[in-house]
Amino acid sequence: MLSRVANSIYWFARYIERAENTARLVDVNLQLILDGLVNYAESVSAHWEPILRSLDDWKAFSAEHSEVTSHKVTDFLAFSRSNPNSIYSSVRIARENARQIRDQISTEMWEEVNRLFLFLTKQTPDSVWNSGPSEFFNEVRKSSQLIQGLASSTMPRTDAWEFFEMGKNIERADMTSRILDVKYHILLPKVEDVGGALDIAQWTAILRSCSALNYFQHCGFSEITAWNVAQLLILSPMFPRSIRFCVRELNKSIRQISGSPPGEYVNECDRLSGRLVSELDYSSINEIFQHGLHEFLDKTQMKLNNIHQELQNTYIFSPQISLLNGWRQQQLQQQQSSWFFTEGTNET
């Protein structure tokens, strides 16, 4: 398949997954605040800041807003046009990519991402805020799940499918690591609060952000502690949103394309993903906590990013077009001999 098409499919899947995870994260934390566990202005701010930090969005947010309120954070993470990682922007980019590969994905997939985008353009922060934001986030989550379900039931298992899977799994692993990292940034008021009601509520929120609460309970962990939550979200070989699970899936797709068997590699991409799988396969939770959870998550994100870079180098790379403006201008100028298509040819 065309490298450019592979790239579009990959980013399409990534941005859809990103929109879903952002929706989960904001929704769960809004509920946490509404539950009354975080109920005065100071702690509301202290609650959101780590979330923005773990998403690497704190700088951009503080540049735009002087105070941290739930309303403003929701605006920023869900609707902001200037934040490239907001739900709106993610879906917009996903759709732009989908538009370029309409011949490669099923009509149903295209229509759903198009519907989601049109839905988002019609929402305003105030209307969502007033009518209860949960409905809104639920809609985003459901749409993303529908797109992934449609991909699974309508895409032939060619390279296109593998690139879709790679985008989805690399993004999911990255987002799970970020959601887990939120807890690192949250400061508990006092040391003795560890294991207290607030601590447990926060860990529960993290499990719910990953749809992992049910499975967590099912696994028979005796209590909600940092160790247990991290055990599940990092190392579970069964849970489809755990980092280990996602990286294994990612590695599978990478090898499906390169054709190299487990334990061997033909390019850097194979090697790095193979190594990360092994690291996760043979890590223990005690070891991770000994070295520091945050440091571990940080390094994992870097490793995922390296795999991403190698993917680009190996399969996608094409020269960057620097004359962006000229490029767009020339696209507009193409004579398509139709009276329909004259709008905007006067654009300067």
């Binding site: 732009e96 011949d103 696209q331 193409q334 139709s338 905007g344």
Partner: peptide
């Protein structure tokens, strides 16, 4: 195709898809 920004882009993807 000239690309995504061309006003006839829908037609380009449409025809390519129909022709496979």
């Amino acid at each position: 195709t000239p690309g995504l920004f061309n006003s006839a882009y829908f037609e380009h993807t449409y025809l390519a898809r129909q022709m496979g």
